[in-house]
Computed example of a mutant assay.
Amino acid sequence: MKRFLFLSLIFATLLIGCEDVIDVDLPEQDSRLVVDGLIRVDINETYIPIEIRLSLSSNFFEENVPTSAESVLISFEEIEDDIVISQGSSTLAETSPGSGIYIPDPDFSSDQRIPTSFLDRDYLYTLFIRHEGRLYLAQTKYVPTVPINSITQGTGTLFGDNETEVTVNFTDQPDVDNYYLFDFGFGEYLVTEDEFYKGQEFEFSFFYEDSFEPGTVLDISILGTDQTFYNYMDQLIEQSGDGQGPFQTPVTTVRGNVFDVTDLDNINVLDNVDQPEVFPLGYFAIVQEEKGQVTIN
């Protein structure tokens, strides 16, 4: 289920009357490690639902291939006046060989799960991945969000009668620069910042390309983001096109916050190895998720 884009309409117009099949030689791309590290937190749960998915990028129109790592670990520390006042770590294990899915190791000698109560502290979370002899690192802090006030079905359309409009209402948190990521399902995402509605109630419409059977329940989420993750998702949504999730094979190599630090010589500067073509794809973020639903009439 995809939204119409103006670019898609132009492209469709250009193709009218053209029936010849054209073979296009697409460029071969080097395989890169792809890190799906978007961790969505329900603060009412006891533990953070840590799940890191690793894959190798493929060529155009091909799915990423799951890959296994030598080790995956998340450390966290709280620093005040350049002094570490609290720290810990979580060792992750692959759910099954070759799956590329890593969760807190259930067979470790101690509980490797991270309680959601830790999110009340100003921890810096660092993801370490050892893969095929190379070391990758990403850092993030937890970002909260606001609840969705309401989701209702609208009657408007943009380009066709088969579209489905939903109207989302939420209230921005005052006195803070906020960035939000909306997940509408079906690989559909939207980002927004509060520059023009800071501290106010805000409402907007989103259009699905297709209509739905009456009684269909649509799940919609709002996720907190910082400015860096907001910018990353904004680029990825624009360049990946409709119908692709943020960690599927991208049409361009959008840089995330995961770095290849194998040859790092300065721990305070992550991207300093002077190898501009050596980098992974994907993102590591720990964010609060608030959910809402609407039932189609």
Rank of each mutant, 00 (worst) to 15 (best):
T126W: 08
F207R: 12
Y232V: 09
L137G: 00
S75G: 13
I267N: 07
M233I: 10
M1G: 13
L223C: 07
S71V: 09
N64P: 08
L223S: 04
V269N: 12
S221D: 09
I43Q: 12
V65T: 11
D81E: 12
I48F: 01
E213G: 08
V254L: 08
T155E: 11
V258I: 11
V251A: 13
Q227E: 15
V24W: 09
D226Q: 03
L38N: 07
D177A: 13
Y125N: 05
Y230E: 02
I83G: 02
Y179E: 03
T252D: 12
D271W: 11
D172G: 08
Y123L: 01
G292Q: 04
P106M: 05
T13R: 14
P97G: 13
L218P: 01
Y142W: 03
T253M: 15
V34C: 09
S99Q: 13
F76H: 08
F128I: 00
I52M: 09
L127N: 02
F229L: 13
H131F: 15
F229A: 15
T253A: 15
T164W: 06
V269D: 12
G160R: 15
G98H: 13
T164F: 01
A285C: 01
I52G: 07
A285R: 09
K141W: 00
E51Q: 12
L15M: 14
P144F: 03
V21F: 12
D274A: 14
F206R: 05
G160P: 00
T67K: 11
L264F: 00
D122L: 08
D172S: 11
I296W: 10
L218N: 03
R130K: 14
T253Q: 15
N297T: 11
